[in-house]
Amino acid sequence: MEKFANKSQKKRSCVCGVFTRAPRIKLDTDGRMQNEEDEEAELEVLAEFSHPVPWQKIEAQGLDLDYALLFSKEEADALFKQLEEEVMYSTGEEAKVQVFGKLHNIPRRQATYGDAGLRYTYSGRTHLACTWTPTLEYIRDAVTNATGHTFNFVLINRYRDGEDHIGEHRDDEKELDPVCPIASVSLGAARDFVLRHRDARGKRGARRLEPVKLQLAHGSLLLMNPPTNTFWYHSLPVRKKVRLPRINLTFRRILLISRGEEPANVWSL
């Protein structure tokens, strides 16, 4: 069911963690190319890099993922250490989640950062974004440079060890821009990431589709492209043999929606 392909076989390639998209050729009225200078400039930039970072495409029915190592081990180690010093995690009522109308302690630590005034509602609770820290800005900008997408919000989950986890869910909240992928950066212990099609969940699943299982490495970046979150649930299950902590940062683009406006309207933009 899973299909893997190097990103260089698609319409864009990746060099040193930076996507370089296939040149967009425009023709003038005489049918001649207009962007020869742009193409030459792009080739000069590519010539500066000598260690390409391969991307993998992971596809299934309604599933579209891109995976790569964004940071070297040394840089990932340094970023993890800096985040441990900078990030302030939620406490008290903010550290609880609503399930079937009842509040439960979250089996991990969470924090929300982003542009001023942004709010994000999930699991029955609304969270106000804290101001970006220098390290979060650095990682956000690295993700933007690697993907071509801009992000204004990040949800941070810290897992103390393999006992901490997150159950099956979809990131399909109304505030999220439906045309923007969710970019997931992993730092620390490698953990299994499991995706399951919505029609194959439970013992009475309507379809027989095998789950997709990935191991997210230290310093890696996973892009969950549309329409993945429409059809697939994802989770980070308990792994008791994992003894080390992990920090996961999921960068998102939140829409500034007026009260009473339906997010579906963004499709017409």
Results as ranks from 00 to 15, higher is better:
residue 151 F to S: 11
residue 200 A to V: 03
residue 144 T to R: 14
residue 108 R to I: 01
residue 94 E to Y: 04
residue 140 R to N: 14
residue 88 M to G: 07
residue 114 G to E: 05
residue 169 H to R: 12
residue 152 N to Q: 04
residue 147 T to M: 08
residue 164 D to V: 13
residue 140 R to P: 03
residue 156 I to F: 08
residue 193 F to I: 04
residue 103 L to K: 11
residue 189 A to L: 07
residue 199 D to G: 02
residue 171 D to G: 00
residue 167 G to F: 00
residue 92 G to L: 01
residue 90 S to C: 11
residue 202 G to Y: 04
residue 194 V to G: 05
residue 164 D to H: 15
residue 192 D to K: 15
residue 177 D to Q: 00
residue 141 D to Y: 10
residue 162 G to P: 15
residue 94 E to V: 00
residue 195 L to P: 14
residue 190 A to E: 15
residue 107 P to K: 05
residue 125 R to V: 15
residue 87 V to S: 11
residue 192 D to W: 00
residue 87 V to F: 08
residue 135 T to Q: 07
residue 198 R to D: 12
residue 87 V to P: 05
residue 94 E to K: 15
residue 172 D to C: 12
residue 132 W to T: 03
residue 125 R to M: 14
residue 138 Y to R: 15
residue 168 E to F: 14
residue 120 Y to C: 02
residue 86 E to F: 06
residue 122 Y to C: 05
residue 198 R to F: 02
residue 120 Y to D: 01
residue 138 Y to Q: 13
residue 203 K to T: 12
residue 116 A to M: 06
residue 101 G to Y: 02
residue 86 E to L: 05
residue 201 R to I: 13
residue 181 P to Y: 03
residue 188 G to I: 11
residue 165 H to M: 15
residue 95 A to G: 08
residue 174 K to G: 00
residue 151 F to W: 10
residue 112 T to Q: 03
residue 110 Q to C: 13
residue 151 F to E: 11
residue 156 I to W: 03
residue 119 R to A: 08
residue 193 F to Q: 01
residue 118 L to G: 02
residue 183 A to P: 07
residue 93 E to Q: 12
residue 122 Y to M: 03
residue 105 N to Y: 08
residue 151 F to G: 11
residue 167 G to V: 06
residue 86 E to Y: 03
residue 185 V to C: 01
residue 91 T to A: 09
residue 86 E to R: 04
residue 105 N to K: 13
residue 194 V to R: 14
residue 96 K to N: 05
residue 129 A to N: 02
residue 201 R to L: 14
residue 131 T to N: 02
residue 117 G to K: 09
residue 141 D to F: 04
residue 167 G to L: 04
residue 122 Y to K: 03
residue 189 A to W: 07
residue 147 T to N: 06
residue 124 G to I: 01
residue 135 T to A: 09
residue 203 K to H: 12
residue 157 N to H: 05
residue 110 Q to Y: 00
residue 113 Y to T: 10
residue 100 F to A: 11
residue 111 A to C: 09
residue 103 L to T: 09
residue 194 V to K: 12
residue 134 P to A: 06
residue 115 D to M: 04
residue 186 S to W: 08
residue 161 D to E: 08
residue 173 E to M: 11
residue 103 L to I: 01
residue 154 V to Q: 07
residue 177 D to V: 00
residue 86 E to M: 10
residue 154 V to C: 06
residue 123 S to T: 14
residue 168 E to H: 12
residue 117 G to N: 12
residue 116 A to Y: 09
residue 120 Y to E: 03
residue 140 R to W: 13
residue 187 L to V: 07
residue 116 A to G: 00
residue 202 G to I: 09
residue 161 D to H: 09
residue 85 E to V: 13
residue 157 N to V: 07
residue 200 A to K: 05
residue 159 Y to I: 03
residue 151 F to Y: 15
residue 126 T to N: 05
residue 99 V to F: 10
residue 123 S to R: 01
residue 118 L to I: 11
residue 141 D to C: 10
residue 117 G to W: 12
residue 128 L to S: 15
residue 151 F to I: 13
residue 134 P to K: 10
residue 132 W to P: 04
residue 179 V to Y: 02
residue 169 H to W: 13
residue 153 F to K: 01
residue 136 L to F: 05
residue 141 D to T: 14
residue 93 E to V: 10
residue 195 L to C: 14
residue 146 A to F: 09
residue 175 E to R: 07
